[in-house]
Amino acid sequence: MDTLTRKRPRHSPMARLSRMQQDGKLTTILFFLPPALVLFTIFVIWPIINAAHLSFFKWSGYGEVTNFVGMQNYQRLVGHSVFHQSMWNSLKLVLASILIQIPLALAMALLIYRKTTVNTAFRLIFFAPYILAEIATGLIWSFIFDGDYGVSGQIATALGIEPIYILADRQYAFMAIITVIVWKYFGYHMMIFIAALQAVPSDLIEAADIDGAGPWQKVFYVKLPLIAHAIKLSAFFAIIGALQVFDIIIPLTNGGPSNSTHSIVSYLYTYGLAQLNVGYGSAVGVVLFILCLVSAFGYRRLALTKGDVL
């Protein structure tokens, strides 16, 4: 697309503008962009700027914001071992999303993207965990992991071994969280893939059939390349989403045992909001923001070729 513009003869800005006005482009832009931009600026960007501002203050959330502390919140963050652990945990979540969640979602999407009644039923089942509210998700899974009454307790009893208290164990607790997150969110990515697969023109598949392509060949040489844009997007959402995991951790482990299972956002919630350190929480938010930004640009560099713009 870039090449197209370069071939065009250069016009002065005024000339370009008047041409745009003639063919209706300008009107479209002026009508179609503002609703999204205005809402976005008021409710997303402005609070972000304010949060960045607050991160330089010590503020409990009550009263006037007056206690300017400079970089103190950031210094404290750098030195806090629980924060280091939460960064490490978030990284593990990113890896799990890319290596487990996306492949699983893709496999399921390929199996059930065609529109049949049975497939619709499977879609419903696979997507249902995403619909289930976080509080219920945490509750039900903590039952499953319960060493006394839960599935893991029952398995241990059946095997005649000591029950394992998964969520009380530093080693297993985070694996449990990863399991729940994959369980809950793979359906989300599956839906993106299904929507993309629906858009693959069926004549291309038919052409491959006529050429005598086997099912695996069709997947790897026709379907996957044609939904590459969706896979890349989905992986991008998975990375950003993994960095922002929050609602699941609080009901499952509440960050424990010994604060070993916090994600960055659950850390922010616990140490920033729940403990009334709004300034400190904002500093964590700013760090998270920068981290997401770096990942996004890194991803754009690594995974996206020209043409796919994020």
Binding site: S142, F145, G147, D148, E162, Y165, L167, A168, P257, S258
Partner: peptide
């Protein structure tokens, strides 16, 4: 009790 770090106050009271 075993697993006390995964026991909420509510569950512990029940135990």
């Amino acid at each position: 009790q075993p697993g006390f770090m995964d026991t909420t106050q509510n569950k512990a009271a029940g135990l």
